[in-house]
Design a protein around this nucleic acid. Sequence first.
DNA 1: ATAGTTGGTGATCAGGCGATAAACATTCAT
DNA 2: ATGAATGTTTATCGCCTGATCACCAACTAT
Lengths: 233, 233
Amino acid sequence: MKKAASPRRARAKQKRLSPDERRREFVAKATEFFSEEGFDGGTRDLARRLGVTQPLLYRYFPSKDDLIKEVYRTVYLEPFDAGWEKLLTDRSRPLRERLQEFYQAYTDAIFTRKWLRIYFYAGLKGLDINRWYIGVVEDKILSRVVRECRHEAGLPEQAGPTAPELEMAWVLQSGIFYYGVRKYIFESPVLEDKRQVISNALDVFLTGFERIFAAAGGPERAAVKTAGTIALA
Amino acid sequence: MKKAASPRRARAKQKRLSPDERRREFVAKATEFFSEEGFDGGTRDLARRLGVTQPLLYRYFPSKDDLIKEVYRTVYLEPFDAGWEKLLTDRSRPLRERLQEFYQAYTDAIFTRKWLRIYFYAGLKGLDINRWYIGVVEDKILSRVVRECRHEAGLPEQAGPTAPELEMAWVLQSGIFYYGVRKYIFESPVLEDKRQVISNALDVFLTGFERIFAAAGGPERAAVKTAGTIALA
DNA sequence: ATAGTTGGTGATCAGGCGATAAACATTCAT
DNA sequence: ATGAATGTTTATCGCCTGATCACCAACTAT
C-alpha cells in the first residue's frame, strides 16, 4: 500500500483558505467519504483523504458526531431550495408538463450515489431527520401533486389530501425514486433513459388517478369496488 | 446498567440442542441482532444477546464474516420458496386477482423490520447478493407480470419483456415496496391498510399499462406521443 | 469408573478507534 | 523585527474490536 504524500508538502503550495471555506471544504469531503464508507468510517481514513492529520479535524469540529450532523444538514437542505413548489402549482401550464419537469429536476438533484447513500445510512440509524424529510416530501410535493390532480379532474378543493390519496401519490414518488436506488445504490442495470421512466410513470399515474378518483368520487369506494371480487385469506 | 445473568446458569436448565440446531439458533438470533445494529455490531454484544460468551461464536463460525454470510443466505433465500410463480401465471383466474394475492403474500414475507433492514445494509455494502436478488425479482416476478399484462391486453407473446416494459413493472413493484420501507425502516406514519395500498397501486398500474401499451402498440411510441409537447432544457 | 469427545469460559493479544495535550509552523498586526 | 494568534502535527491515552489459546465442564462409549 502506498502511503499518501506528506500532508505538509501537499498543502504547502495551496493558498490558505479562510476558516469558513476550509470548514466547508471539510464538510463537503466528509460527505463524500461517509457516503462511501458509512458513518462508521474512521476519522483517520477521512483525514487521510482530506490530506491532513486526524487531530486537525477536532480543531474544526468538537466531535465526530458534530461533523456528521453538519453532513446531514448540508445534504438534506442542499437540494431543496429551488422553486419547485411554484413550478408544481403553476396552473398556466398543463399538469403533465409540470410534473415531468418537476421530477426531472428533482431527480437531477437527488439521484447521486452520494445523496442516496447518505439518505439510507441516516434512515437505518433511525434519525429523526429522515422522518422530517419524508414529511417535507409530503407537504411540499405530494400534497401539491394530489391537489393539482384533483383540480384537473374537476373535484372540489379540500384542505389537504386524504390518506389514500397521499398514499397513491407515494406510489408514484416511490416508483420514480426507487429507479435511482436501483441505479446508484445497488448499481443494477437499468433503462438508461430517465426521461422515459418518468414519462411512463406519469402516464400510468395520471391515467389511473383520473379513472379511480374522478370516476368513483373517492379512493375508498373505488378500491372496494374494483377489489370486491377478490377472495383473500 | 444491569449485567446479564451468568450464561452458565441461564443455560443450565435448558436441554442441549443438537449442534445443527444450535448453529441455526445462532444464525437466527444473529440476523435479528445485525438487522438492528448493522453489520458493524460487535461480537460481544451479539454473544450477550445469545446468552453465551463471545469466544463461543468462533467455535461455530470461523469468523464474523462467515457468520454474516450465513445470515445473508437465510434472509435472502427464506421468503422465496412459495408457489408464487404458479400463482402469477395461473390464467384460470383474473389477472388482477392474481396480482393482488401475490403482492399480499410477497409483502407479508418481506415487510418486516428485520428483512428490510438487512436488505439495505447489504445493499449499501455493495454486495453481489443484492444485485442477484434484483435479478431474481425481474425474472420470477416482473417478467411474469409483464407477460400476463401483455396477454390480457391481447398483445403477441414475446420471449422476454422489453426494457421499458420491465421498467414500468418496476414502478409498480417499487411503489408497493417503498410503502414497506417507509413503514418499517423509516418508521414513518403510513396508511395502515396495506390491502388498499396494493389495490390502488394495481388499479393505477393495470389501467395505465393497458392504455399505454395496448393502445399505442409499444411504450416508446406512447411515451413520445404523450410527452411530445414537453419542452425540456 | 474411565477415557474421549464435544460445549463452553476466562484471560489475553494485536490492532483500530475517538479524543486530548503539548509542541511546532505559519501568518498577521504592529 | 517581534509577539500574539492561529493552523497543523507528533505522540499518546483509554477503550473497544475481532480473534486465539489454554483450561474447565459435561455428556457418551466403553
